[in-house]
Design a protein around this nucleic acid. Structure first.
Lengths: 256, 256
DNA sequence: CCCAGCTAGGCTGTCTGACAAGCTGCTAAG
DNA sequence: CTTAGCAGCTTGTCAGACAGCCTAGCTGGG
């Protein structure tokens, strides 16, 4: 919870751009089903009157909804709600904010791809990949003994996970991991400073990092996957992120 | 600037919107590093003169780049390249087109999340979840015997995977699987029609689907993961999608 | 009655000009 | 030397206009 609060203090009561408000309003109408797929939106002029803004602002809002796949426009015909709204892009959080209960679910998604990445990295890493991973590992080790380099530790932590993503030689997997990691940069920084350091969290994480590196270095895909799984579970626990869903009584083995 | 001229010549049958061309040109400049993170973009008026378009078009282009996290604007100061460009949203393909070599990598990403989803679905599925999965399974079975319902089969195939995603009770995992599946709808349709049917592809896929359902129904997470893995591997083979990266020889010797 | 073709109105896409809000660097007063 | 204020520039917003395109409805012939 605290990490999320820390994220939320960025901006106070900025009204924000007018187009942002129009985007939010229209998207809400679409997601609520009030504007069903295939339905035609009011004309730009009418929307401008409804929201009391100029047509330029309405056009900017519709352009963004179009880019995200919520609406499609046809010159001369009008703007229509897409058949499957919002599937043109994948985003996280609402207007930059991430709720606490969402965090657990996002973390579970992150675990899925990072475990797969560790497995693939073990199978495909080159010498250069290994050197990059080890470099990040050693930088984190230095940050641990230095005691002052909290920010450096967080940066190296980020670099470690990115280096593994690179070693998969899969551009999309790489980019998705960077995308997810981007939204965790703040909480990662907290682990490496103040409260996190006192709780010895970086030392625990570092032991898990070393297991991951060792498995990837010797090309043991199954062990790399297990080590990544343990690390992600450990990270979730350190962040205070619980399980994302209910556990069924049976079939609970986590290692396949 | 030549890039704009080249774009205008390239598309004869579909000129495309002017703002799309400006977006593509600016994004290319950013991704190539020509416009480094933190650098200030030319003013809107200057960009309008360079691309020979009005300021309104430039503004629309910058609004989209801003939404995708490529640039940040500050009123009165200017527009600046973001520190980590493009990490505000995750997209697939360039302007709607997906290259063949990209398909293998995207499929690998999809496999990672769908296998994780099958595992979680086995742990968390409710009676209602199971009923939805079984309904899609039976609809595919009917499409197989009907012989004429190719389109229905593809729809049910989609529904099957979505129902499993729902059973994870993880909104983000669900949404990401829908996002990925959205870009595979065309190829899934092909498997269920004409060439795919003659090659008996739907029957092979159905056997894999049934294994997945059985494992999820009895709450066997490990078996569900294995069945999903086999199914995704089978789907990739049926689509003619090869491995996304090089496989290391057994024992994991390094190469490169 | 039915249908093909045309026409008129409306909508999005683009352009132009203008003003408001906010930032930056320079300058002049203290 | 410090600092408050000013001037110029840039983004944000508004208003009006026209071109390209689509659709509904009318019209005329079959």
């Amino acid at each position: 919870m605290p990490p999320v609060e820390a994220l939320a203090i960025r901006e106070v009561d900025r009204p924000g751009r007018l187009s942002d408000q129009v985007v939010a309003a229209l998207r809400a109408h679409i997601e609520s089903g009030e504007l069903a797929p295939g339905a035609r939106l009011p004309t730009e002029q009418l929307l401008g009157e409804r929201f009391a803004v100029s047509r330029a602002v309405v056009r900017e809002a519709i352009a963004r909804l179009k880019a995200d796949g919520y609406v499609e426009t046809r010159q001369g015909a009008g703007a229509f709600v897409a058949a499957r709204p919002g599937l043109a892009s994948f985003r996280i959080g609402h207007e930059g904010r991430i709720e606490a209960r969402e965090l657990a679910q996002i973390f579970e998604l992150r675990a899925a791809v990072e475990v797969a990445a560790a497995r693939l990295a073990a199978e495909r890493r080159t010498r250069g990949d290994l050197a990059a991973i080890r470099a990040a590992l050693e930088q984190m080790a230095r940050a641990l003994v230095d005691g002052a380099g909290g920010a450096d530790g967080a940066v190296a932590d980020d670099a470690f996970h990115r280096a593994i993503a690179t070693a998969t030689h899969n551009a999309y997997l790489h980019r998705f991991i960077e995308f997810l990691g981007h939204h965790f940069s703040e909480s990662r920084r907290l682990s490496w400073t103040d409260a996190g350091r006192r709780a010895d969290q970086p030392h625990a994480a570092q032991r898990e990092h070393e297991r991951m590196y060792a498995a990837i270095a010797r090309g043991d895909a199954a062990a790399a996957a297990r080590a990544a799984e343990d690390h992600l579970r450990g990270s979730a626990a350190r962040l205070g992120v619980g399980s994302a869903g209910r556990r069924a009584p049976r079939g609970g083995q986590m290692h396949g």
